[in-house]
Simulated assay, not measured.
Amino acid sequence: MLSLQAKKANTSIKGQDLLTLADYSPATIKALLKKAKELKKAYLSGEPTPILQGKILGLIFDKPSTRTRVSFEAGMLQLGGQVIHLNGQELQLGRGEPISDTAKVLSSYIDAVMIRTLSHERVVELAEHATIPIINGLTDLYHPCQALADLLTIQEEKGKLEGIKMVYIGDGNNVAHSLMIAAAKVGMNLVVATPIGYEPNEKVTELAKKFALENGGEISIESDPTQAVAGADVIYTDVWTSMGQEAENAQRLIDFKDFQVNEKLVLGAKDDYLFLHCLPAHRGEEVTGEVIDGNHSSVFQQAGNRLHVQKALLVEILQ
C-alpha cells in the first residue's frame, strides 16, 4: 500500500519516520527549516554541533547516489554521530530475508535508517516493522529530503514561501510529487508543466490539492510550459529520464523536446526568477548551460542545503 494519506498533524517528530512530507504538518516543516538555518549558521561559522554523539545511522542504498550519500554521512559525522553503510545486495535482504525480519534486527543495533531504493512500498514495509525511525532517501514515489532543501533555498532567496509561484517543468516523477506536497503544505502556488501522458500520480495530485486548499496555496497541472512559466518566481526542472528508465530514453527525448528550460522559455518568468534543479543535470536536454550556469541559478546552494535540512531532520528525530 502506498503511503499517500496524511497522519494526524505533528508538531514534534522525535522517534518518527519520514516517508513522505504528507505525514508532516506545516508547522513541523517550518520548524525543520528554522532548525536547518540554525545548523547552517553554526556550520558556516565553524561552531561544533556534537548533538548526536553516540547515535548511529544506517545507510541503505539500492540505487547509486552522490548527494544523498555524502550529505547524510557528512551531516551525521558533523553532529557527532556515526554511520554504517548497508548495501542492499550485501544484506540478507539480497538473499530473500523478509523486510520485516531485517527491520527488527536493525532496530536492535542502530538508532535510525536512511534508505534509498526503488519501491516506495519497500520503505513503508521497513517502517511498519522497525522500532527506530526510517528516513526515505528516495523512492519511485517520493523524494522528501530533496523537497526540504528546495524549500530552504527558496526561503533564503525569496525571503518567504507563502504566495510564491513555482513552476516545475518536466516529468511528473518522485521529485515532482514531493514538491507538490511540500509547496501545498507551506502555501505556495505550484504549476507542474509536463507532456500529456507524463503527469504526476493522480492520488498524489489529489492529496496535494487538498493540502493547498487547507494552507492557502494552489496546485495545478499544465501541458504548455510557456503558459505555465508566466510570472514565475521559481523555475524548477529535473532530468527527463530517471534511473531505471533508460530503455525509454529515446522516446522521452522526443516527448519532452518542447519542455527544455532555455533562455527563450524563461523570458516569461519574473525578472528576478530563481532557477532550481535537483541534479545531476544533463545540459542541452532538460536545461541549457546558459540557464543552469547563469545568474538566476542556485542549484549548488540548493544541493548544499541537503546537508543542513537533513541534519535538522536527524536532530529532531533522534535528539
Rank of each mutant, 00 (worst) to 15 (best):
S3V: 07
A74T: 15
V105H: 08
S178M: 08
A74K: 14
D293L: 04
V124W: 02
I292P: 00
L32H: 07
L126M: 14
G46E: 04
D101K: 02
R67F: 15
I13F: 01
I219Y: 04
T102K: 06
A208M: 08
L148Q: 11
K160S: 05
M166V: 06
G217V: 04
T102C: 03
Y24N: 04
T194Q: 11
D23C: 09
I56W: 12
A230I: 08
G137Y: 04
A22Q: 12
R69H: 15
A27I: 05
I254C: 00
T20I: 06
R69V: 10
D111K: 04
L18S: 07
P195R: 14
V204G: 07
S107V: 03
Q92S: 12
E156F: 03
T237A: 06
V291E: 11
Q82W: 11
L79N: 14
L152W: 13
I13W: 04
A230L: 09
L314Y: 11
K30I: 10
G170I: 00
L161P: 10
A250C: 00
K30L: 15
A112M: 11
D101S: 09
V204S: 06
Y43C: 12
A112I: 05
M76W: 08
H129Y: 13
Y168A: 00
V315P: 00
Y236E: 06
M1I: 04
P133H: 06
L52F: 07
A74V: 15
Q302C: 00
D255V: 01
G216A: 06
F72H: 09
K55Y: 03
E125H: 08
P48I: 04
A147H: 03
I132V: 14
G170W: 05
I110K: 01
V123G: 06
G284N: 12
Q251G: 14
P64F: 15
R283A: 03
L86C: 07
S298I: 00
A212N: 05
R116Q: 08
Q16W: 02
A112Y: 06
M188S: 03
D258W: 05
Q260E: 11
I99H: 05
E128R: 13
V186D: 02
K158Y: 13
G187K: 14
Q78K: 15
F275S: 03
E199F: 02
G15R: 12
I60V: 15
L21P: 03
Y43F: 15
D140V: 01
